[in-house]
Design a protein around this nucleic acid. Structure first.
Lengths: 205, 205
DNA sequence: CGTTAGGCACACAGCTCGGTGTACTTAATG
DNA sequence: CATTAAGTACACCGAGCTGTGTGCCTAACG
């Protein structure tokens, strides 16, 4: 433990290089964007030598893809597993903004990557596509559970609302998730036949 | 007219430099993104010398701002002035995708600029904000005309749908405006009291 | 015809970026 | 202790970027 923190010159932080790189990319890509974050700065923040970084990731592109893959293992996704909520409540809870500590909801990194990279063939863009499809599918599953007449349609609609809120929050610099939530409430109530809704209400409340 | 097309060496296209620069930026910034388009390439496409470009625009930033300002003086905006449609039809017509010749609707350049520039203080980002507010306001006006109970809310909601469709089309590489249009129809019918709706229907049809 | 504003070619400065080469040091494992 | 995997320091390359400096040209206008 003598020299765990610092070596004779500079950083010297030891074995966890890869994790530090990824966690630095989480911070920097989100705060500054991908294109505006150079590998030099990223390595400095990660306290990792550039050489090491390029032994873990052959490209910056590959790092970007891994950054997306390792993003958020359970913020939005976690809502779907909450058993304390009815399916309908779960669908609405998705629109509670992730709230980055304070201030506005940061732009969904999948949208940001797609726009910044500007290449649908980029591995990160492909992953973004997959992720968005997955979210829509999970929304559809929950919609089905809630008794929606056309669950796939409702899932796609709610996904669109999420993306709209994210994009609009970024452009306007104003929180837009409440607006999306209001729309979601309307859509959900419109999609669930009264019979099913009443059944749930009597079951839960 | 002898040497209007070409001079002794290279380009030599004459007086309309500024317009050519802007129109080249329309094409390139849309197709490649702002950050991935260098001034060299832009000048080559515009058939303008770099020196001339920098005499018209002190910065690339300033050019980007002007590019947004000069964008689309009437595609989406034009719908609002169509007197052959009822207010309700106008609100729905906004969701007819601009359809870039063929293929997907290109990402709204205001969103693209906000994300790419990544600086809310950038003049282009500020203009994007203004533009989005204006669109929402015009939607609200039309909503009021259509007899909506809460026109401002409906305007903001429809604006969110537009942005969601734009963002999602880009990320998924799949046209999302029809989904947005479907939501819009629900919201509009939900926001307009039956009395007002019937009045319009009997008047028009 | 002469003036001049607008445009041109071209080289280049200065910077940042992604990525590599080399030789060294440390920490864990057997 | 010896080996080896992981990391480090630092210089460097080539490319691309924004932005200038300089001198020349020519089309339009009075």
């Amino acid at each position: 433990m003598t020299e765990l923190e610092k070596g004779p010159q500079g950083l010297r932080r030891g074995r966890g290089a890869r994790e530090r790189i990824i966690s630095a990319s989480q911070q920097l890509f989100r705060d500054q964007g991908i294109n505006r974050t150079g590998m030099d700065q990223l390595c400095a923040v990660a306290q990792v030598s550039k050489r090491t970084a390029y032994q873990h990731f052959t490209n910056k592109d590959e790092l970007v893809a891994e950054y997306l893959r390792r993003f958020d293992p359970g913020v939005t996704a976690g809502v779907f597993d909450r058993t304390d909520l009815t399916p309908r409540e779960r669908l609405l809870a998705v629109f509670e903004p992730p709230r980055g500590k304070e201030g506005l909801t940061p732009l969904c990194p999948y949208i940001a990557a797609s726009v910044e990279l500007h290449d649908p063939e980029h591995p990160a863009s492909q992953y973004a596509r997959d992720y968005k499809s997955t979210i829509a599918a999970r929304l559809a599953d929950t919609a089905r559970e809630a008794g929606a007449a056309d669950p796939e349609q409702l899932g796609e609609q709610l996904a669109l609302l999420l993306d709209g809120a994210a994009a609009r929050t970024r452009v306007l610099n104003t929180e837009s998730f409440p607006t999306a939530a209001a729309i979601a409430a309307v859509l959900i109530d419109n999609a669930i036949p009264t019979t099913a809704r009443e059944r749930v209400n009597t079951t839960v409340g």
